[in-house]
Amino acid sequence: MSSKEKKKGALQEKLQLLRSVTHSHAVNKTSIIVDASKYIMELKQKVDARSQDVVEDSSVTMQVTVETLEKGFLVNVLSEKSWPGLLVSILEAFEDLGLEVLDANVSCSDTFRLEAVGGENQAESVDAQMVRQAVLQAIKKCTEE
Rank of each mutant, 00 (worst) to 15 (best):
K44L: 12
S82L: 03
G85E: 01
T68G: 05
S58K: 15
I90S: 01
T68Q: 10
E80K: 15
K81P: 02
R50M: 08
V88T: 05
V77L: 05
D53G: 06
S51L: 14
V66S: 05
V88C: 01
T61K: 15
S51F: 04
T68E: 10
A49S: 02
V75P: 00
S59V: 15
V88Y: 00
E70I: 03
L87V: 11
E70W: 04
F73R: 03
S89Y: 00
T65G: 03
T68P: 06
N76T: 07
V66N: 03
P84T: 09
S59P: 03
V60R: 09
V60H: 12
W83E: 11
T65E: 12
F73V: 02
K81E: 13
L74Y: 08
Q45S: 14
S89G: 02
V77Q: 04
F73K: 02
E67A: 13
V60T: 11
L74M: 13
I90F: 06
S82E: 12
K46R: 14
S59M: 11
A49T: 13
M62C: 12
D57H: 11
D53H: 10
S51P: 01
E56G: 03
I90P: 00
G85W: 01
K44F: 12
Q52T: 04
K71N: 14
L78W: 07
V55G: 01
E80M: 07
V66C: 04
P84W: 07
V60C: 08
Q52M: 15
V64S: 02
M62D: 06
E70D: 10
E56W: 06
T68W: 05
Q45K: 15
K44G: 00
V64T: 12
G85R: 01
Q63F: 00
V77W: 08
E56M: 11
V55W: 00
S59Q: 10
D53Q: 15
N76V: 09
N76P: 06
T68D: 09
L87H: 06
S59A: 14
Q45G: 08
F73S: 02
F73H: 00
D57N: 15
S58L: 13
I90Y: 01
K46D: 08
E70R: 12
K46V: 04
S59K: 06
L69I: 08
S51E: 15
E67R: 14
E67F: 04
Q45H: 10
K81L: 07
Q63K: 08
D57F: 12
S82I: 00
R50E: 14
L43E: 14
T65I: 07
G72N: 05
L74G: 01
I90L: 03
T68N: 08
E42N: 13
M62Q: 10
F73Q: 00
E80L: 12
S58T: 09
S89M: 03
V77Y: 02
K44Y: 04
L86I: 13
E56N: 11
E42Y: 05
L74A: 12
